[in-house]
Design a binder for these strands. Structure first.
Length: 275
DNA sequence: GGGATTTCCTGTTGGC
DNA sequence: TGCCAACAGGAAATCC
């Protein structure tokens, strides 16, 4: 499931291959769920056909394609979305929702569960795209500090992990890295966000940055669906300390890892190390 | 407005 | 072996 490290891995892999390429043809099915009501296929084709890709950026878990028209193509991979390049004419796999024929190959967006989405933003209006609008700070930017995180948690009664998943105090964390960051910071994910002490917020801020940077260096985490270059797996799965390790021993104290349900999601943590 | 819950979706897994 | 229910989860919608 692509979170910030997986999206960043895909971005850095594709950026060099896409920069300067022209979109010759757009193939998509009108009414496809990945477009929701945000953009019609007709408008997407008008906006993309003949345009040059000037760069591929990322905001949180969103991939942002900058076009020479000033427009932006925005893709969220959801849970099972993948982007990759095919040879021209090579058939796309099942669940291909968007295909961009470029100069020498085709970029395809494949997503079986259709939790992903494809959007379009006009010049200067990237911040108005649903999802990007209320997105918190980038965790790996210098501007993301303990003070900034504290401001996002202040007064909040939701569990700290739920707040992290909301993308508002900070962008880019999903279930895996929210669990891992809480573990590294020694914070019980069920505690109210607003009750964390300054030293705890500082530890959480540092843990978020650390776990994301480490995972990017490992090309992300592959549990099941996520793959990066030509089907390669992300190597961070071997370094997970609590996520998906219910009943196993805590690597720090030996206590059994617990699992709790939090708003319909599973949270993994050590009762002894996380308070 | 905040917080909790539900919904969307399909491939995989576990139980019977 | 085969069927079916449960489960996985990001983000938006809905309810209280």
């Amino acid at each position: 499931m692509p979170e910030l490290p997986e999206v960043e891995t895909i971005r850095s892999l594709l950026a060099g291959k896409l920069r300067g390429k022209t979109i010759r043809e757009v193939t998509a099915r009108p009414g496809d769920r990945v477009f929701r009501d945000t953009v019609s296929v007709a408008r997407l084709k008008r906006a993309l056909t003949g345009r040059k890709i000037e760069g591929l950026g990322r905001r949180g878990k969103y991939l942002v394609f900058a076009l020479d028209s000033g427009d932006f193509l925005v893709i969220h991979l959801g849970m099972t979305g993948v982007l990759y390049l095919l040879k021209p004419g090579e058939p796309g796999p099942e669940h291909t929702h968007l295909r961009l024929a470029l100069d020498k190959n085709d970029l395809v967006f494949v997503d079986p569960r259709t939790f992903g989405r494809v959007m379009l933003a006009s010049p200067g209006k990237l911040d108005e795209v649903p999802g990007l609008r209320d997105l918190g700070p980038e965790p790996l930017d210098d501007s993301f500090t303990a003070e900034v995180l504290a401001a996002g948690l202040r007064g909040r009664k939701s569990p700290v992990k739920s707040l992290l998943l909301s993308q508002k105090p900070v962008a880019g964390l999903g279930n895996i890295y929210a669990d891992e960051a809480c573990f590294r910071a020694g914070i019980d994910p069920l505690r109210h966000g607003g009750e964390l002490k300054p030293a705890e917020v500082e530890a959480l801020c540092a843990s978020i940055r650390e776990v994301l940077a480490e995972s990017i260096a490992c090309k992300g985490t592959t549990i099941r669906d996520y793959r990066w270059d030509q089907g390669k797996s992300g190597e961070f799965a071997a370094r997970l300390q609590v996520y998906g390790r219910t009943g196993e021993r805590c690597p720090r104290c030996g206590e059994k890892i617990k699992r709790a349900m939090l708003g319909g999601r599973s949270a993994h943590f050590c009762r002894n190390c996380q308070r």
